[in-house]
Every structure is written in structure tokens, then in C-alpha cells.
């Protein structure tokens, strides 16, 4: 399976957090790289556009990077995998 069922939702919410915090892909990638992320900037960009699937750990590191960049208490946070219950096939 190319995408885990909740991956699109996790991605959409990450995008919303980036938009709220006015965080660029470059800024996100640099923080993600700083905390141990191993995907390249182009892969991350492709993931954000829904063109590329990333493993769970990398997706959660991206969420953590975005949340650390967000000002405290401002707007929606990026969710982690364990905060998103898998949907039934065919849903969403």
C-alpha cells in the first residue's frame, strides 16, 4: 500500500499548520533535518504536495518540526500518527 489511510489527513493538517505559522518548506525541512529527519528537501516538498509517501517516523518528525516552529498556542497543530485513528478503507 503506497499510502497509509490516515496519511492524507496528516498531510492536510500539516499543511494547515504551515500556512497558519507562515512556515516555508525550506524552513520546515531545515528544522526536520536538525531533529534527525532523513528525507531530502525535495522528498518533503513532494510529500506536502501529495506526490510522495513518507514512512510514519518521517511524517511524525515533520509534524514535530512544524509544531516546534509554530508560535505557542497559535492555530492548529500538526498531528502525529498516533493522534489519527486509521479510517476504514473507502472512507474519506
Amino acid at each position: 500500500m503506497a499510502f497509509e489511510s490516515y496519511e492524507p489527513e496528516q498531510r492536510h493538517k500539516l499543511q494547515a499548520a504551515l500556512k497558519t505559522g507562515d512556515i516555508t518548506t525550506g524552513e520546515l525541512w531545515l528544522r526536520y533535518f536538525s531533529i534527525g529527519g532523513s528525507a531530502g528537501e525535495y522528498e518533503v516538498d513532494a510529500y506536502l504536495q501529495g506526490l510522495f509517501s513518507l514512512p510514519r517516523l518521517e511524517r511524525d518528525l515533520l509534524a514535530m518540526a512544524a509544531n516546534e516552529l509554530l508560535p505557542d498556542g497559535k492555530g492548529p497543530r500538526a498531528p502525529y500518527s498516533d493522534e489519527l485513528p486509521p479510517m476504514e478503507p473507502g472512507d474519506g
Binding site: T24, T25, G26, E27, W29, L30, F33, G40, E41, Y42, D45
Partner: peptide, 8 residues
């Protein structure tokens, strides 16, 4: 879509 890539 962003500034100069850090990887570059």
C-alpha cells in the same frame, strides 16, 4: 516555491 534550498 521557497528560498534557496538548504541542501544546496
Amino acid at each position: 516555491m521557497n528560498r534557496k534550498a538548504p541542501l544546496d
